[in-house]
Design a protein around this nucleic acid. Structure first.
Lengths: 247, 247
DNA sequence: CGCATTCTTGACCCACTTCAAGTCACGTGG
DNA sequence: CCACGTGACTTGAAGTGGGTCAAGAATGCG
């Protein structure tokens, strides 16, 4: 019970699909909706489906028909690609407040990767046919969505160059820092990654083996940079980790 | 003189910036413009600047202000990212008929990578402020542009997974096949990559060293899969190369 | 013809992977 | 509440892919 469900109390129930009214405050302030008035947000929510996903649940699968697009309200997701050979790699993570599964924005009719709940999560979703309506009717929705996409493309390119040019230790250091930056929360000992992460997960982010990750974390723990337990990592000395990542 | 300038005779002159009228046939049939009538294409061309780039010329640089967006008419480009440490990797290639430098589509104000002419090339360009006009005025322009972006995002993810999971020989085989697929032309001996490629270039695509690429090409040449000379590769047995790439 | 790039090839070596054999943590069910 | 089973983690030992170092040969441009 290291992980606690999070902020959106209104939704922290166990029902699978919500018909009940969603609170407008859920979307207020999120970039894609920031320029909309109360009424427009109401419309959007009235078309939305809300659903809870247990840790480990697949939300949609690579290659499947893109039928819906999503907004993560609470929790964390892994976006994963699997090779024909069965190896898988984690392309990026999704944090609360972000759109995902926005294949329609790129005129795709299948999802390019799978989305898996890294922790218990809650997401809204809409059928893709509404995408055109949203972008046409809501000022700023398209703009902000494409901005998200741009950021994500940048991130992936970043990961790609890193993968191609850096040694394993740097890649793992960067990966851990990325996790901390997008989901870190302060604790007594340092900054902790807010959802369960295994050595295997980290190796899937960095194209190495769980063994190597384990050895690195052990070494870092000995020199006081991190503290880690099962499925859980706390960075106690972020500065030294940054040094390792970009020397 | 292995490389010959290509099809667009109207533009194969050496002048730097064209003011002369561009022929409408240049854009007819290209996806982003396919649904437009003659008059609309005329408008678009009247706002375009045309320019020739020698092999090796940088068209725009990573991190610089995105002031224009481009369409490649003839030639080939490398899209390159450089690390702080000075290593560079080739993210993808651009073939004739494709839009590039379309940062504005993703609401970016700087280019996320550099574009370099891999061979003598000719491109049209427009100031970014016209992007909004184009997407608003021209049916299908936005749609097709985002489709391009979607394809490109897919390609990069593909490369990323490959980088993270495959051994060097497979990565190099895939890279060569990718080049052949998007710029191959038949010759007596097999399919040849239509622009100059060095061992170093291939290693920049695959995150390895020019030495390793050289050894691989030598080995493949001995077993009759490729023939290669300075800056030039011909695949004589594509099938065997596919086998190497995806066992 | 000379010089700069590109390419080749051998020899060495080490960072990682692979293989193997555990230990540890935690949830489940008797 | 304890025993059991499974998934997560650790750590040694051995092997190797491919990077690094080094030297030279080919190619083609000015």
């Amino acid at each position: 019970m290291v992980y606690e469900p999070g902020a959106n109390i209104a939704l922290s129930q166990t029902s699978e699909t919500f018909v009940a009214k969603l609170d407008e405050s859920l979307l207020t302030g999120l970039p894609p909706f920031s320029r909309l008035n109360r009424e427009q947000i109401r419309e959007i929510l009235d078309h939305a489906t809300s659903r809870r996903y247990d840790e480990g649940t697949t939300i949609f699968r690579e290659g499947h028909d893109a039928e819906r697009f999503y907004l993560l309200l609470d929790g964390y997701l892994r976006v994963v690609r699997t090779t024909p050979g069965g190896d898988q790699i984690i392309v990026l993570h999704i944090a609360p407040g972000q759109l995902f599964g926005i294949a329609p924005a790129l005129q795709r009719d299948t999802y390019p990767a799978s989305a898996i709940a890294a922790a218990e999560s809650i997401a809204l979703s809409w059928p893709v046919r509404l995408w055109a309506d949203f972008t046409a009717s809501y000022e700023g929705f398209a703009t902000e969505s494409y901005k998200t996409l741009g950021t994500r493309l940048g991130q992936i390119q970043e990961t790609l160059t890193e993968m191609a040019t850096q040694a394993v230790e740097k890649r793992v250091a960067s990966a851990v820092l990325r996790l901390v930056n997008q989901s870190g929360r302060k604790t007594g000992e340092g900054i902790e990654i807010a959802f369960p992460v295994t050595r295997q997960n980290i190796s899937d982010m960095t194209g190495t083996t769980l063994h190597t990750v384990s050895r690195l974390l052990s070494a870092w723990e000995k020199s006081g940079i991190v503290r880690s337990t099962r499925k859980h990592v706390v960075v106690t000395d972020p500065h030294r980790l940054v040094l390792l990542s970009d020397v």
